[in-house]
Design a protein around this nucleic acid. Structure first.
Lengths: 143, 143
DNA sequence: TGTGAAATTCCGGTATG
DNA sequence: CATACCGGAATTTCACA
């Protein structure tokens, strides 16, 4: 992971469909060498995945919120984790060191779906003792 | 944005470097049609960017935290926003409807960098009256 | 759908540490 | 000896009508 790798990553972050020859022109390295470096960055796990950034409004995720979750007992964690992973509304879920145990970032089409998610999907999980929801008004920066 | 578009997006989310002919084989649609649909998804802004998912440990972002920020006066918002956008430690920044005004997701190499960021970069901004930091222990799900 | 242009991959050869 | 680079040839893919 040297300076050239960093340059390649920066270019691919802007457009992961850039061809090796496009990159080759930008950083003055032969096409096969560029391709080889990309392959190695994948092998080493530095690049985990080539993916997309989608427009949230276009895909029914117009409303975002942070939902903090408190869990009562550790024995219920598995069913909580299963629900989270399977839910298409949950974009992120992090285990926290603080008052609350988990922080979810959720994206839903509208406020009624959010209500549904919190009062049905979440509250019905055994062990969820308390949740706190904060609506996101707008986003200044995102990845 | 029909069912076929959704299929194409799903494939590209898994690997955005997939060629049109690869996709063509998966969804039984001609290569030019696939290419045309991808182009239109970009034009319409449904696909905002083709990008990467990087391994955080490999790129010096081993430690993540949520930092909530309270702003005193609205006249200082511009310098706050400028600092946030320029900072390489801030992955996300959202305007909130709640007690705190902004929520930042930050990623740093270590705890001392986090301390530095909060006590220097953030607290020195005019108008930042209060912050609250919660460390992320582990991540169950992320995009 | 078919054709020319461009990109990818594989290979052999070379330089460097 | 291992690693990384380059240039050329065969195959695949792309973009156009």
């Amino acid at each position: 992971m040297d300076h050239i790798d960093s340059q390649i990553i920066e270019l691919l972050q802007q457009n992961s469909r850039m061809t090796s020859s496009d990159i080759s022109k930008c950083i003055h390295l032969s096409v096969p060498s560029v391709a080889e470096r990309i392959r190695k960055l994948e092998d080493k796990g530095i690049i985990e995945r080539f993916t997309l950034k989608l427009n949230r409004n276009a895909i029914g995720q117009a409303l975002m919120a942070y939902v903090s979750v408190m869990l009562e007992r550790t024995e219920n964690i598995d069913s909580f984790r299963a629900t989270i992973i399977q839910s298409r509304y949950v974009l992120e879920c992090h285990h926290l060191a603080g008052e609350y145990d988990y922080m979810l970032k959720v994206a839903v089409p509208d406020i009624s779906t959010l209500e549904q998610f919190i009062s049905v999907s979440l509250k019905n999980i055994q062990g969820v003792s308390k949740t706190n929801t904060v609506i996101i008004l707008s986003t200044l920066k995102e990845e």
